[in-house]
């Protein structure tokens, strides 16, 4: 049986197709076909983007729509995916996917473009508790992105730059809009780029960490979402949370879509 999970984020659509195999009588899951479609602000309507990403994923896997047993959607825009059979929250799908990748995971941190949240999960990948802030850009990737733009760096360069710094400069501004002016004044004051980058990523990490602390930190900590690609952020987050290791999946932005496809498969039994 093949199911599809579609994660409709604020900036991109992620699709994972999941095949449930029977290996010597034991059911096993095989994922692998994934497709992402990046949306720009004011791009295509969300439902059109979802259709497009889904069709591309099917084409890449050599499958047709009728081959898919069920399509489930997750993410902030899950309601826009008209062809999905059911929708599940980002907490449900994120915890499910993270525990599949790291069975010992009990604390899941999800930081994407426009939202950051912390979740507590059980051994089955069921979200028990969560805390997040979806309505303020300060605790999410877009904060770091706006600041990297002020430094004329890509987000990746920005993360790498922060690793070169061992300074701790506190940022006074909490708001993304005000922080932009603060970064500009740091530039004017000839503060090294590396130190500014670290200050910004430390600030995002401390906000994300405060959310995670509300649900409590226990067991293995897994970070999912697009910010996994930012090594500087991962390092800042480790410091903020006071943990030695944070497990990072290889396809961090697809974890929610994967969890979503898994839930779709479970509900077909």
């Amino acid at each position: 049986m093949i199911t599809a999970g579609i994660d409709m984020g604020s900036r991109s659509v992620k699709v994972v197709l999941l095949e449930e195999l029977d290996v010597n009588g034991a059911p096993q899951l095989k994922y692998g076909v994934k497709k992402v479609h990046i949306m720009m602000p004011g791009d295509l309507d969300q439902d059109v983007s979802a259709e497009k990403a889904y069709d591309e994923a099917l084409a890449a896997a050599g499958l047709k729509r009728e081959d898919i047993a069920a399509v489930f959607a997750t993410g902030a825009g899950r309601g826009q995916v008209a062809f999905a059979k059911e929708g599940v929250t980002e907490m449900t799908s994120g915890a499910k996917g993270a525990v599949f990748m790291f069975p010992a995971a009990r604390t899941v941190v999800d930081v994407g473009a426009e939202e950051g949240r912390g979740m507590k999960t059980d051994a089955e990948g069921k979200a028990i508790d969560f805390a997040g802030n979806e309505k303020c850009a300060a605790g999410a990737g877009s904060f770091a992105e706006a600041m990297s733009r002020a430094l004329q760096m890509t987000l990746k360069e920005f993360g790498d730059a922060s690793l070169q710094s061992d300074k701790t400069i506190p940022m006074n501004a909490q708001c993304t809009v005000f922080a932009e002016s603060e970064v500009v004044s740091l530039i004017h004051a000839s503060t090294p780029k590396n130190d500014i980058a670290k200050a910004v990523l430390d600030a995002v990490a401390s906000r994300v960490c405060a959310m995670v602390r509300r649900v409590g930190i226990e067991g293995e900590v897994v970070l999912i979402g697009g910010m996994v690609h930012n090594a500087g952020f991962v390092s800042s987050l480790k410091n903020a949370m006071g943990v030695d290791t944070i497990s990072l999946p290889d396809m961090p932005e697809y974890i929610s879509a994967l969890g979503c496809a898994m839930i779709a498969a479970e509900r077909q039994h």
Partner: peptide, 16 residues
């Protein structure tokens, strides 16, 4: 500085 971070600063004292 705390005036801008109260929701985080007070989190440890709140009922949860």
């Amino acid at each position: 500085p705390n005036c801008r971070t109260l929701s985080y600063d007070c989190a440890d004292c709140k009922p949860s």
